[in-house]
Amino acid sequence: MDISQYKIDNEPFYDAQSNEIELYEAAYDARLPVMVKGPTGCGKSRFVEHMAWKLGKPIITVSCNEDITASDLVGRYLLDANGTRWVDGPLTMAARYGAICYLDEIVEARQDTMVVIHALTDHRRELSLDKKGELIKAHPDFQLVISYNPGYQSLMKDLKQSTKQRFCALDFDYADAETEAHILQKEGGVDEATAKKLVQIGETARNLKGHGLDEGISTRLMVYAATLINKGISPVEACKMALVRPITDDADIRETLDNAISMIFG
């Protein structure tokens, strides 16, 4: 098993919003499990990647969804020509070889699935594979990080208290206008004026949250728009394509945002 394939070689760009880097480093130092909260596309995954690179640790990412099961995390028996064979799941692999295991959008997974991580996230730091009859003591480098978006939390999709209370949490939000503009320049390759206008559009759309929009325009989408502009698409077209069409099917909202965009770009 070559765990080094999960290592990140090049520095992922990350612009700190405040002191989250130091906080994370301290948590990793004590191997405390960390939970990263924030709206979609605000840089949670990028942050975790960046930290893994900074600490020089491999990172195994699992994107959670409703169908994910305990065996998808832990591992399962598969059939091959000689009968059955055990295959480690991502969580087991991370615990065994010492990687950061990152469970993205954890609320998407069903609550009872997540109970398997309990033993790994307290003082025991162990994972029992009952089907295989093995007890894994976690590697000293192992750390568990989860992320979720409190925005579309509903009664159905929430973490159990017993899960929540095993993590220390970092709260993320969209970066302030200046940082966001800087990110767009750096990632999307647009000039400062365009970046500022994109940020203005983003703020405009965030005002509509709760008036027909579930979420504002994420930093990620703005980076897309910037990239398109960089490729020579006209700013208004790029914004419609990257910022408006993806987030809404509502004709009125679309028209409103289109109008705001043409007003901002003049």
Partner: peptide, 13 residues
């Protein structure tokens, strides 16, 4: 009306 409501909200808060 709805469009204007949203414009008012999003462009001018």
């Amino acid at each position: 009306e709805r469009h204007m409501d949203m414009l008012k909200e999003c462009m001018w808060d």
